[in-house]
Amino acid sequence: MTSLLTVKSLCVGFPGKRGVLPAVEDLDFHIAPGETLAIVGESGSGKSTAALSIPGLLSRSSRPVVSGSVRFEGQEMLNMPDRKLARMRGPDVGMIFQDPSTSLNPVFTIGRQICEPLRTHMGLDARAAEARAIELLELVKVSAPEQRLAQYPHNLSGGMRQRVMIAIALACSPRLLIADEPTTALDVTVQAQVLRLISGLQKSLGMAVLLITHDLGVVWETADRVIVMYAGRKVEEGPVRRILSQPSHPYTEGLLRAARKEGRDGFLTEIPGVVPPPHQRPPGCAFEPRCARAIAACRAAVPAIRSTGPGQVAACIRAEEGQPA
């Protein structure tokens, strides 16, 4: 299978008082055309940083140090000149962010914001762009699309704004959609609508989706493959159904139990401790201080990624020990 996006040894760090703080370390993955890959992790896992570095959207002022390789259809995107990169955002890579109330511009109408990419990237004239904008709003199931064009973001509810964001991201029919926590700010009944909308559009448009989320339930219901990240590194990767039924990394297991709200006698299963901050990561496996299966060897070196099942890889030297009872 040819891959649409190939990421190799991606490292992203941010300079701080104590030197460069590593946010993402040595990340490899690929996405095939039409596939949904989810990256799941808690805050500080590096999942959003990794996603933002693909279309070159990391904030300049934080002076990110990026190395490795990000190839979109064979074309290297890291260190690509800005003008060239800008031409790719839209037709090649579309993006949806978490917070629909801050990612739309409050002083421009919905119509103007949807038409902008249509006019700059697709070369449509004003009238054609407006017609296409109405089509797009219909596609994302916004009611009364003609009237919405003249409205401002504050006139819309959170769910409607996120639909508008999706319409903008889809305006140039991107081959890859990067969705960074697209439903986290929404209520559950609206979240379900938006997720169903994204997967429906993906199937009909044949687009690949890179979904960033902290919610394993969302992963189960939308993704084909999943990457679990912890403290800046990939700890497990594989087909969703496999990973969420037979995880081999103890962190994935803990996350899974927490997400299922599994409990006994009124208490929920918890992972003890906290995610170590970037400047205090232990030398070996970053999960070792919180891990019930940890042994001395876990502290010696960062465990290598290796195969643990069909299509499944994990970074744990004790993956075969199985799930503790």
Binding site: V190, R196, G217, W220, E221
Partner: peptide, 24 residues
Amino acid sequence: SLFDAAPRIGRPEGEEVELLEGDV
């Protein structure tokens, strides 16, 4: 609907959940 709409790990594929239309 509030109970069903929450994404659930292990929900069988093809199990159709009736979603609410629109916003509050």
